[in-house]
């Protein structure tokens, strides 16, 4: 029986889709698990593009929920990674095109065949959010180190707890160690302290995320990406390993790394 994990945030643009794509790919690639990523952002689908699978969509989640096609017809197999699948969202409909009951049924069906079902939630706390959490067993909340994002994350923690989620986990995305050092960005402890939830991982601000999104290749598979390393650590933690947080110095390329990059040499993340 698989596990359904919803990735959510409240605020838009903080990195839910990026997190879903990287954790999903990482669990399949490094964890050797059978994984399906479900794009629950109906009307604003993105996960297909981040994964580079946009040209292969025939049917979508709304078609499945409404019985217009079989589950298998809507699932796209990622040919680059064994055991990785995507269930795309519909682009032309809106959030009311499926109900929380239909989402629950869909998750229950997927659980029979997959080890991990990752749900990429839309922003907000309305219907789209309710759909996204309907069939989930666990939740991951993504935030950036900004007042508004943390505030919204806190609201989501409350809503999740009210819906019976026991221990939602936090992902802090786009952390900039240089700014933290200067005292111009909240640090990890500040946010954990304020939100009072457990940390799953911290992802540094990384240009490689933009590059990987351009290419449609998740950064988790890129050995030279620091964000990728952060995602690989999170994958291990989801699989039950006790991996310490990456030291903040490693969030930024060292001088030697910059030299190596300049000469086109391979840089390995520590």
């Amino acid at each position: 029986m698989g596990e359904v994990i919803v990735i959510t945030s409240g605020k838009g643009g903080v990195g839910k889709t990026t997190t879903t794509a990287n954790l999903g790919t990482g669990l399949a690639l490094y964890g050797k698990k059978k994984v399906v990523m479900v794009d629950a952002d109906i009307g604003l689908r993105n996960l297909d593009v981040v994964m580079g699978l946009e040209n292969r969509i025939v049917y979508d989640l709304v078609d499945v929920a409404n019985g217009m096609c079989r589950m298998k017809q809507a699932l796209i197999k990622d040919k680059r990674f064994d055991n990785l699948y995507l269930m795309p969202a519909a682009q032309t409909k809106d959030k009311t095109a499926v109900t929380p009951e239909q989402m629950k049924k869909l998750c229950d069906d997927l659980k029979k065949d997959y080890d991990y079902i990752l749900i990429d939630s839309p922003a907000g706390i309305e219907r789209g959010f309710k759909n996204a959490i309907a069939g989930a067993d666990k939740a991951i909340i993504v935030t950036t180190p900004e007042v508004s994002a943390v505030r919204d994350a806190d609201r989501i923690v409350g809503l999740l707890e009210a819906s019976g989620f026991e221990e939602p986990k936090l992902v802090i995305n786009r952390l900039r160690p240089d700014m933290v050092k200067r005292g111009d960005m909240m640090d990890i402890d500040d946010m954990i302290d304020i939100l009072a939830i457990e940390l799953l991982g911290v992802v540094p601000e990384d240009e490689k995320i933009v590059v990987s999104t351009n290419r449609g290749e998740p950064a988790v598979a890129d050995e030279t990406s620091r964000a990728g390393k952060a995602y690989r650590n999170m994958v291990s933690r989801i699989l039950g390993e006790d991996v310490p947080l990456m030291p903040m110095e490693n969030f930024e390329p060292s001088f030697i790394d910059k030299l190596r990059m300049f000469f086109g040499l391979k840089v390995r993340t520590r």
């Binding site: 900004e146 007042v147 943390v150 505030r151 806190d154 933290v180 200067r182 005292g183 111009d184 960005m185 909240m186 640090d187 500040d190 304020i194």
Partner: peptide, 14 residues
């Protein structure tokens, strides 16, 4: 520091 301002504001807001 702006971080401490952020933290203080966030505490009150929450």
């Amino acid at each position: 520091s702006s971080k401490d301002i952020a933290k203080e504001r966030l505490r009150l807001i929450l």
